[in-house]
């Protein structure tokens, strides 16, 4: 442990100013380390003081809950792994997890190429009104999710919806957007992609702009056409940003809830039932907090595994 330095800062002798002006005495700034090593921690302390009880504490509480049986109004009872056994054996949870997983894969498979394409288009020299496009792309993410879902509910309506109106106007049959188990998940994926593609495209666009121009010029000198420059310069150098987007989007994908809850309530025939919907129903509608917490822990493990998988997949190509 070290004692604090003397309080007075060192003052350098005043050097004569070559232009004849009176120079101010130079006060040497005290190095940060002399304020003590605690200073950085003090700066981040407010965040941690809130995060530990309300962030980490909540997670710890949820994990703890997953090992107890808690009938509301009674004291919690430790039940070991029985909640996990029950939740993993629950056909509804299996369905929900399976739905969420495949919808996530489809969502990422559409979102990443589309987001990159939009970002590349935004970066095009020929694009006029770039800022307007950026704002337009950002609007869906800024809009209330509930409002967006309600609007899509009308768009997707089999009888009065705009989409079927357009289809029938050109002689095509109506599509049961939300009432067919084969179509409804795709309708929800489409809504989700529409909502976030602009947001992620702007992040990818910022990544593209950080790629040094020299590399493109060198590639051009070597005779690379636009496609080659995209393939051999843009995409490889954009990989760290793409990884971030993939991870952020996959977390959002695993946590899919509001859209199917509003549009389909998990139907038709459980085709849009997701893991978070299961957790919500189990915890708040069936009052089974222990089982809900166990399902949440399983979901958290899936999110961590996906993040690790994406890290490996993206880094192995770097």
């Amino acid at each position: 442990m070290t004692a604090a330095s003397p309080a007075r800062p060192p003052v350098r002798p005043v050097a004569p100013d070559p232009r004849g002006r009176r120079a101010e005495p130079e006060v040497r700034r005290r190095p940060l380390r002399q304020h003590g090593r605690a200073l950085p921690y003090l700066f981040i302390a407010p965040y941690f003081l809130l995060f530990l009880p309300f962030g980490a504490g909540a997670v710890a509480m949820a994990v703890l809950l997953s090992f107890v049986s808690w009938d509301i109004g009674a004291a919690p009872e430790l039940t070991g792994l029985s909640n996990y056994v029950e939740v993993m054996g629950d056909p509804l949870f299996q369905t929900a997890l399976r739905n969420t997983a495949w919808m996530l894969v489809a969502y990422l498979a559409i979102l990443l190429p589309l987001g990159t394409a939009v970002a590349v288009a935004l970066n095009s020299r020929n694009l006029r009104g770039r800022r307007s496009f950026q704002v337009a792309l950002f609007i869906p993410i800024a809009a209330s999710l509930v409002t967006v879902a309600l609007v899509f509910q009308i768009l997707y309506d089999p009888n009065i919806g705009l989409l079927n109106g357009l289809l029938t106007s050109v002689g095509l049959p109506r599509v049961p957007w939300l009432t067919s188990p084969a179509v409804a998940p795709w309708a929800i994926i489409a809504l989700r992609v529409w909502r976030v593609v602009g947001y992620y495209a702007v992040i990818l666009f910022a990544g593209i702009q950080s790629i040094p121009q020299d590399l493109y010029e060198a590639a051009e000198v070597d005779g690379a056409d636009a496609w080659s420059r995209l393939r051999h310069v843009t995409l490889p150098l954009l990989r760290p940003v793409t990884l971030f987007v993939a991870i952020a989007a996959s977390i959002g994908g695993w946590e899919l809830f509001a859209e199917p809850q509003i549009l389909t309530e998990g139907g038709p025939l459980r085709s849009t039932m997701t893991a978070v919907m299961f957790i919500y129903r189990t915890s708040f509608l069936e009052f089974d907090l222990g089982k809900g917490a166990a399902a949440a822990a399983v979901l958290a493990a899936c999110i961590l595994a996906t993040t690790a998988l994406l890290n490996v997949a993206f880094r192995s190509k770097t």
Binding site: Q153, D157, N159, I160, T179, T264, G267
Partner: peptide
């Protein structure tokens, strides 16, 4: 009429 209940859609039909 088979459909998920929404006020907007139902009153419109």
């Amino acid at each position: 009429y088979v459909g998920f209940w929404t006020d907007q859609a139902y009153w419109e039909i």
